[in-house]
């Protein structure tokens, strides 16, 4: 009796890591952008400071890490949630959500490389 082992771990790894990272940092990031939305732009979010942060390779790594993991966390959980809502076309849902995550990952890389 050999049932194929699932390949879910590929996406579950980033899901779990992403869930942890977003739990730690997303609320405070939202707080910063909320200040900006209210008209008080925090110093980190001014063009000069954010540009300087993103131009630094360590800054790039931090931004890329946060966006990559948040994206894949949310994408995978969305797949499960749509299943929970009764949408049974799991293969298509998986293709769609992971496509969005891949697109976001590539875009992030592309924009980060343009900032120097």
């Amino acid at each position: 009796m050999t049932v194929a082992k699932s390949n879910k771990p590929i996406v579950w790894g980033p899901f779990a890591a992403g869930g942890t990272i977003t739990a730690f940092v997303t609320p405070v990031l939202v707080l910063l952008t909320l200040f900006a939305a209210l008209g008080f732009v925090p110093s980190l979010l001014t063009y000069e400071n954010l540009h300087a942060f993103a131009a630094n390779w360590l800054g790039k790594l931090v931004i890329f890490g946060i966006i990559l993991l948040s994206l894949w966390h949310a994408a995978h959980r969305l797949r499960v949630t749509l299943h929970d809502f009764g949408i049974r076309a799991d293969t298509w849902v998986a293709i769609a959500v992971y496509f969005i995550a891949s697109l976001g990952t590539v875009a992030t890389l592309f924009y980060l490389l343009r900032i120097s």
Binding site: T26, I67, S70, L71, H73, A74, G104
Partner: peptide, 15 residues
């Protein structure tokens, strides 16, 4: 996850 996803897309847009 919908909020996290939407917010992450906002971050990419900011970038």
């Amino acid at each position: 996850c919908i909020f996290i996803l939407a917010y992450t897309i906002l971050l990419i847009f900011a970038l």
